[in-house]
Design a protein around this nucleic acid. Sequence first.
DNA 1: GTATTATCTAAGTCT
DNA 2: TAGATAATAC
Length: 837
Amino acid sequence: MNDVCYFTNELKFLPIETTHTFTLNLFKVISQNTSPHYYFCWMDYLDGLNPSQKEAVLHVTGPSMVIAGAGSGKTRVLTYKIAHLMRKGVDPFNILSLTFTNKAAREMKERVGKIVGEGEARNIWMGTFHSIFARILRTEAAKLHYPSNFTIYDSSDSKSLLKAIMKDVGVDEKTYKVGLVLNRISSAKNNLLTAAAYNNNVNIQAEDRQMAKPKIGEIYKEYERRCFKAAAMDFDDLLFKANVLLKDFPEVLNKYQHRFKYILVDEYQDTNFSQYVIVKKLAALNENVCVVGDDAQSIYAFRGANIQNILNFQKDYPDSKTFKLEQNYRSTKNIVNAANHIIDYNTEQLDKTVWTANEEGAKVKVSRTLTDNEEGNLVANDIIDIKHNNQVQNSAFAILYRTNAQSRAMEEALRKKDVPYRIYGGTSFYQRKEIKDLLAYCRMVINPDDDEAFKRIINYPARGIGKTTLDKIAFLSNAEDKSMWKVISSSQLDSLEINSGAKNKVRHFIEMIQNFHILSKKKNAHQLVEDIAKTSTILTDLFSDKSPEGVARYDNIQELLNGIKEFVEDDVVKAIDIPYGEEAPLIEEGQEKSLAVFLQDIALLTDSDKDDKTDNNKVSLMTIHAAKGLEFPYVFIVGLEENLFPSQMSLSSRPDLEEERRLFYVALTRAEKEVRLSYAASRYRWGNLIYCEPSRFIEEIDDKFLEYTTPQEKKKNSFDNEQTGNFDNQRVNYRSTLKKGMSKVTKKDSKIPEPKIIPPHKKMVSIDASKRPVDPTFAASASKVEIGLRVEHLRFGKGEVTNMEGVEPDRKATIVFDNVGEKQLLLKFAKLRILKI
DNA sequence: GTATTATCTAAGTCT
DNA sequence: TAGATAATAC
């Protein structure tokens, strides 16, 4: 039995029924020669694992690390490990499992539930670092002098606050870019540096002075203060303050050390220092900690993730066991090998060999198009073709890109061809202005000290409280170190030097918010928010706007209301499903569906956490970052151009470039059956047309894994050796930090060429859009196409025009192509070249 | 104090 | 191109 049941793509099973140690499974066996057949069998729940997976699962006591190659069944190991712990008698309350998204947590909980029983699985603490520690912080808030209903500022709140501070401090917004300042503060927090520590740190101060931004420390200090007075924490605070809690309050540390006897961390390669310290502290008592990760998939260095955490792990726990999962169950041989080949260009990596027993599979197709829009058409057509030829669903496809801005061209093409799709990430629903406005009212009801929410709604919809009044309130608020709400709702309002008209308007506003607050005790979240939308006149305001944007905004508000209604009515779906009970005293009986809980849930919702319950059969569009941990039969990686992927900003340092390459590795390894790469020769960026060169990553894949579907651009020697070797002195040498038992670092093979760095003078040229050049070959004007002419189409090849119908601009040509037969093409879209007869 | 228009600048990835 | 901000008129 054991020999047969290792999982391959050909062998799928469904658990039917579970007893204490055995599971009845339904197997579907697919082989090439016979038709699929089914059989039942009882098996021990561990029989579904291969030897190395099993070894990792069976290791129960003491620290362990699992280095898991892409598609090697990492989630499976985590799931079975948790199930195994529970089978061994561990109380689910004592298990803490930290995942990368809440959705991953939910799914894993479900799977554990299938093995050990749902009721039991419910009690596991499972979620993202941010959501788990937000929950713990709410419980322990008083110790940090925060109320338990504190607000979580998202990055736009943080930026708006920083802008206000920078104005007050008197620094120029052009030199001090908000994004940069926020990044500095963020990375300080992720390295557990308070504003005071930041200002006392000689190196940091020197760095800031060198950047000609010596006042960042001062801004940080003020930012810290204003967040506190608004009873708000930003994303990084959730981890930072969790650290403060565990450091300054031994009794709290003790409590959670006893609570979390077993700790599991997924995607360990993407944890930052702050997260690393949290895990280390919590695990210090029992040392039953299991981390799972893959250094080759580390793609979050930009937000402080530190690959050193994996190495530190072995230093901290010299007795820890390391397990390696190297068999890939997801992808074809061709994909696995192509990905391995790419990642070999990186100098920084742990030694492991990912392999697969799966079939050889198709080659990776590479296509070039003239423009970004055409790239969209190409992908859309390919999807239609593959769907047709292989009888697969829309959900089998993913289009992955480096930047969110690239989604536009893809969307347009898919829409034009009626292919249903869903975009993950991007400007998410909750970031839209109208949604943020309405939610700001909600935030004020839950936490009136929330200054960012206050600023947003004090005069929206317009109620005659202008800049002058607001400035005076803000001034007093800062001078007295009180929230703006505290300033106006106290007797201090009388002493404010504003005219009586404005004062009355402010009083009216206070009354309105207070009324909402009273209502919040009586009504459920949906009724309350509906009332807020009406009373605040947001609803009528948007309704009267009949422009397409206005209508869309109104619809969005309705959608939000529907969402809240669903939240209230649905008793199953909860974004953060960790045990309530004594840990969450703020949620009183009957309050599980309150507005407060809704706000808590959405603040930390990842885009992929939101399930589209109505229709899941859609093509997925997302950034590669968002695709982490996911898999799809067919993956399109688009925009493979220098300066886009790899990103222009990564070109000046080797570690950054290597992170881009890991990102490409992640993209490739999402695919089960087929990967298609594409790049455009030109694309619009900032409203300008720019010319692009194919990404170095395409060249880095050996030709034996590739198939070019369009004529390959002639090989350029442009970025030859001139700049290679630049980074050699920056190379991070892991070997010195390695302990025995650790995997060896691959010595870079001398045969493998150095990554080629594009010289600065090869930067993209942008030209005026009005001077956009017309491609000489494929831009025949539609009017010249006539019946009887021989034409050439980029994708379909050569053919003869047999019929014309319709009037401009919807003129259609029927063309019989030599290879693909008859097609009807809209001339305004089809780029045809007329062939000389 | 508010609404409209002109000008600027930005988009790298995410909790 | 589009959203955010500054300048202008009302």
